[in-house]
Design a protein around this nucleic acid. Structure first.
Lengths: 400, 400
DNA sequence: CGACTTAAATTCGAAAAGCAAATTAAATTG
DNA sequence: CAATTTAATTTGCTTTTCGAATTTAAGTCG
């Protein structure tokens, strides 16, 4: 597109390549990018000079001839920058600090007041969380180059605008700007559902794939899409509302106010509601405990609980099949932290789903379950910010 | 990406720009692409010399000062190439011949034997159709630079491989190669559902949008997606099976053998089946007539017919809402040739759909109905081939 | 152990591509 | 018809990249 910045462009390209392929020798960079060896040498020299990458000795491999001048691996210089990622949930915040190479440096969790908060109050909590996080790594807030923030709700990532979030007491808040002014650090805001996809793409199972879908189930149902190697966000910043996909005409009531949403069948509150109201089970108040009760009962053969859980499984399989029919991805990742929903991740669901997709003489997409800890959300947020820091760093490189 | 071809790259970029923006003066090209005026002059000189574009006098406009040296518009030179597009249906073939500027030069329709044909027989029919088409324009088959072919079924466009098609009596046919060998012309194969999206993107309502969805209803339900300005095809060449999206658990039987597919509620055969079996209407044999009967009855208030049609509408609205919830597109185009399905394109359906999407403080996507003639499929096929011809032509340009 | 082989990385001169500034071209205006 | 305005082109220069030759850092062999 814009010419006149060619050098920046090739620097960016090579930095990306190094970042994605981990330690890689120059000759492979030339091979993969189509840039000549001479140019690779000169551009990587710039990146080395700027401290963005570093040389590491390459351990010998069986499949490589040991003769000739040995290859020298290049990798991202971890020490170049610090990037924080954080996810705000209902009553807590989890934070992670990564180095420029994506390696965990520190992590931190802290409680925040439950419910909707005024934007500047939330910003203050985030600031204190980040300060603590930095301290754990023996650094200060000022050492952090950028912060990625994941928020539930409807978020326009491009403009840092929060249309609506369960964490904020106002609508249409330019929370990205608010936070940036507050912290004095570059802030990149995103919907938390996208973070999962981001984390899988950068660190997880999606690394090797260019088209995949990530589904998460916790109290709601989240989804992220990577299409053509890029996170797809939709045009209004509210794409991928998989949980509010309709699976039944005039069906069960969803907390979003509509009927027949997938979430209204498979989310925790839905299971509990159904088991108690229709099935007549008497359940304790906190939803998380009640869910456990229902699931345990189902496993031990209680017919009422079984019915509820079975239907949830079938609905989930149907929703999944619809996604696969529409996208035809290479891979579907079911990602979750608590395995209280493992019944939805079971082989029977996957089997059911496979039966509902259009058959052709090519294998159906892989469906894999990826259990992870709750820091993965924060890592996704950091990965999102990391991309921007990479670009900024490349642009800031001075010429020799 | 690949350097060492920079000149080709800027030629390609400018040719694309001219092709998309219609007649456009050099100064605007410089403005829009970020390429300097000097370079635009030199690159367009190459394109002119190669006969790919031409200068046309610019008519004066009210909003432009008439002073100074007048702008000279550049446009694609129509005469540079001929591109054919064709769509194979059950018992017929429609063909269109476009010039390099996308303008219709000739069109043609012909019958082919009904049902599944051996690949080489179908290739022969295509050859004869193309020969007739060329003749209508006073040209010969050899004058055609490339042919785009749309086939129903599951098609891997990239490899020209047909996994399965109702038009072929074999599976996994490399029909692209078969046809190319037969004709001696470059052949680009694609699924017919994608052609609709291609046509809308190149000639139709999608011109101004980068993310939209096109839905077609005839005997089946088709869908094409344009995401980020590009046709999205999925990874196995069978994405966008919107018609086999499930809208009801264990629902109506679809001709694909599964249950609860959207198609099983809204396609022509589904309406007729339901009206006759459940509703007790007695209907004549050809589906197309029977559909008309049902729809007419519904309009004149027949309660049975009404029920059938109403449910179809609701199911369609639900399927549409699911798409919007997942993709969050700018625009949804309902494209159709026969308006026998206009009840599904009615305002009530659109209204119903709007109620089922997640609400945020931004307007819902536009939903528009685009009626078109059956040549539009063939035009989409030609548009697909046209892109390749453009690229090939640019690469073939010799240096001064 | 030193000459030879192999393969990666670097250097160097040349070529390509693009740009800014200056110039030319083609129109209107007064 | 001279002045003005704006588009397009030309010119000379800079930046960027590449190919080929060279250097470097190993292993191998006699």
């Amino acid at each position: 597109m814009a010419f006149g910045h060619q050098k920046v462009e090739s620097r960016r390209l090579l930095l990306r390549e190094i970042s994605q392929r981990g330690p890689v020798p120059r000759i492979d960079l030339a091979e993969h990018t189509g840039i000549s060896r001479a140019t690779v040498t000169s551009v990587t020299a710039d990146l080395l000079r700027g401290g963005l990458i570093e040389e590491v000795p390459r351990e010998s491999r069986a499949d490589e001839s040991a003769r000739g001048r040995p290859r020298v691996d290049l990798k991202i210089a971890g020490a170049a920058h610090l990037i924080a990622g954080l996810k705000v949930s209902n009553d807590a915040m989890s934070l992670v600090l990564l180095d420029f190479d994506g390696v965990d440096v520190a992590h931190h969790e802290c409680d925040i007041p439950t419910g909707r908060l005024p934007p500047d109050i939330l910003a203050q909590h985030i600031q204190s969380g980040l300060t603590d996080l930095a301290q754990k790594a023996g650094r200060t807030l000022r050492d952090i180059s950028a912060v990625g923030v994941g928020l539930a709700g409807v978020v326009d990532a491009q403009h840092g605008l929060v249309y609506w979030s369960p964490s904020l007491n106002a609508r249409n808040v330019p929370f990205g700007d608010v936070l940036q002014d507050h912290l004095g650090i570059a802030v990149y805001l995103d919907n938390d559902a996208n973070l999962v996809a981001m984390a899988e793409m950068t660190f997880g199972l999606g690394k090797a794939h260019s088209d995949f879908i990530v589904i998460t189930i916790e109290s709601g149902v989240g989804m992220g899409m990577v299409l053509g190697g890029q996170l797809y966000r939709g045009t209004r910043g509210c794409g991928a509302e998989f949980g509010h996909t309709k699976v039944h005409l005039d069906g069960a009531l969803c907390r979003c106010g509509q009927r027949g949403c997938l979430e209204a069948y498979i989310a925790d509150y839905a299971l509990v509601r159904e088991a108690s109201s229709v099935g007549g089970m008497s359940l304790t108040t906190p939803t998380s405990q009640a869910v456990a009760t229902v699931l345990t009962a189902a496993k031990s053969g209680d017919p009422t609980a079984r019915k509820v859980v079975d239907r949830a499984s079938k609905m989930f399989a149907m929703g999944l099949a619809n996604l696969v029919n529409i996208f035809d991805p290479e891979l579907v990742i079911l990602a979750g932290e608590q395995m209280q929903f493992d019944h939805l991740y079971a082989d029977t669901v996957i089997e059911e789903m496979r039966k509902s997709i259009v058959e052709i003489d090519k294998p159906a997409p892989d469906v894999v379950v990826h259990k992870w800890d709750n820091l993965m959300w924060a890592r996704g947020a950091a990965a999102y910010a990391l991309e921007f820091v990479q670009d900024t760093a490349v642009e800031a490189l001075e010429d020799a």
